[in-house]
Design a protein around this nucleic acid. Structure first.
Lengths: 338, 338
DNA sequence: GCGACTCGTGAGAGCGCTCTCTCGAATGAT
DNA sequence: ATCATTCGAGAGAGCGCTCTCACGAGTCGC
């Protein structure tokens, strides 16, 4: 039976070439130790010679595993996507860990409402072993629906309501509080904030940190304008802030992009930073080092969020228990804007 | 508590529930018209009732299709990833089209050398029907290897050598030439450039455009410093440029990020933009609208690059012919820096 | 009214793999 | 020497799906 194989080699092909059975070849491929060394060796040689690569579809049909993980970036995420280092950073982190674990990364961009059902169907079809959800909108029902579907899920960012699935988040509030302390220590007394959207936990908690930090200033009133984390909204919010109180001597922006926008408005209106107005951002994206002046900001470990997300989903998929939440530290990075 | 129901419904389950055969249910699922309407209807109801979703592994085992496309972002790409809008933009474009076609997007981040083999193995296993390669390094052998493996491939950016696979690119040179014309029209005579890496086509062609554009200035000498497309390299290159010739009155940077860096150096050194030195970038990323002053730049249709890549790979996968290359237009966007 | 066609449907053969079960041979205990 | 035990390896049964083929029942022509 010396037939030249027509299509791609299968287990059968390899087995014949090595003079073994399909089962034994399978053992070698999957690293079983119960194969006699010389037999294993000749099988391995046949595998290389024939360029055999296992068919994942066939394998997952029987194992019920797919060795791939979905990363879902919902609506709000992709909106920010185009100009923020956050999601690319998370993707890299996730990808890095998944690559090491030899898992595939399936990217689902949930840009429209219709994506919702599509994602649910997809997950139901069990094409992925687990799901990493870069959720932002607290009201999102997807985490819960996925959990209900019986699929391991980890989300980035604590959900707004009760957390029904494990999540990775950062210490928003305490980071902002450190920023506020710094501002107060600098002698600033009229500190405003450009907050993020209220329907995102990141927006809420950073605002909470601002309010807490303000308590160190007896009698100080809060001055809040809301943005959407993007640059333009920072520009606009800063204008409104200055209109409401021209005497502002510091501002905390809930994102670096908004802080950069604020910087721009301040410059246009002739305010010097940090002399007249000190500015602190949040995120510590790459661009924060290149604003004018370089931005003092609350650093969050974007890449680590990604790696942790991946690590947790891998553990869940492996059937291990994971902590209900991991909250990563943030820290104030002092540059020149405050 | 996640109870695994007595097993997910299969075609068999649905068939029994609807009193039909597996084959007929399959016909309905796959939209065959040769099923009697009332039978089809009752099958459809059973599908909904049972929450049946086809098992993709089983399906692709027999069809030899997987309905998923890999997007490979190699080494150099992921390096730029963290702070550039290019790859996120491309990903979105690709994702958008793929979603409409009901294909999955598998993201392969080729960050290390070892990824190379991993990708090849992956593609060989036919877990994807086609590959979109966001290649940047011209010397990359991956496109050719993938083609040799018999998998449909489309790349972003013309390869450095001969193109062996279809690609999508933009009109680098002519876009830069338009920028140079604009500069010359503004009366600038000592025009320098911050070029991109020479091992990337984008770097080369933009430099070529600069050199061509310079010919409109009789006797003008070229003034070139090389960067890596990132902001810091723009900062540094601008310094070197000014050292070499303090009388520079314009500079074309091969990326917006480098242009932004140049802006920063110029400002630090007391040069007014555009009064003393006019600056033009390339890319038209979101941030270009927010530099100080807003950046005049060569716009490239990032999102469309993504959608076109996806469209082409879908056609290839479907067995259709595609043009060997599609070169998308660029255009000069005039803001305030030049 | 009978062969010749449609046309809708079911039976059944795999796709390539894993995994349990079984079996033969080699080893150890008595 | 005999019987129990261990261990490596093969046979074979599916995993859930698609698709070819065959078949029974209507439909039409003459």
């Amino acid at each position: 039976m010396n037939e030249t194989p027509a299509g791609r080699p299968t287990l059968e092909t390899v087995a014949r070439a090595a003079g073994a059975s399909r089962a034994t070849v399978s053992r070698v491929v999957n690293g079983s130790t119960t194969v006699r060394p010389d037999v294993a060796e000749s099988i391995r040689r046949a595998i290389v010679d024939l360029g055999y690569v296992p068919n994942p579809a066939a394998r997952s049909l029987v194992t019920q595993r797919t060795d791939s993980i979905a990363l879902i970036l919902p609506e709000s995420a992709t909106r920010v996507f185009s100009d923020d280092a956050f999601f690319p950073g998370v993707i890299r982190g996730v990808g890095e860990v998944l690559e090491k674990a030899d898992k595939q990364l399936v990217l689902l961009l949930a840009s429209t409402r219709s994506s919702h059902d599509r994602i649910l169907r997809y997950v139901h079809s069990r094409t992925v072993d687990g799901v990493v959800l870069a959720s932002m909108h607290g009201a999102d029902t997807l985490p819960e629906e996925l959990r209900a579907a019986g699929v391991p899920v980890v989300t980035s960012g604590r959900p707004l309501g009760e957390a029904t699935v494990p999540y990775i988040d950062v210490e928003h509030a305490s980071g902002v509080e450190a920023a506020m302390e710094h501002l107060v220590g600098l002698g600033r007394r009229r500190i405003a904030t450009i907050a993020g959207p209220r329907d995102m936990v990141a927006g809420r908690e950073r605002l909470a940190g601002y309010l807490t930090g303000l308590q160190a200033l007896p009698g100080a009133v809060s001055l809040v304008e809301e943005g959407d984390f993007m640059r333009q909204s920072g520009i606009d919010a800063m204008e409104r802030l200055l209109e409401r109180d021209p005497g502002i001597d510091a501002v905390f922006a809930a994102s670096d992009l908004m802080a950069d926008g604020a910087l721009r408005t301040l410059r246009r209106l002739g305010r010097r930073v940090p002399d007249d107005v000190a500015v602190i951002g949040f995120d510590d994206v790459e661009a924060a080092r290149f604003t004018d002046p370089p931005l003092t900001t609350v650093h969050q470990p974007i890449h680590e969020i990604g790696t942790r997300l991946a690590e947790q989903i891998l553990r869940l998929v492996a059937g291990e228990e994971v902590e209900a939440s991991i909250v990563l530290p943030t820290r104030l990075v002092i540059r020149e804007s405050a």
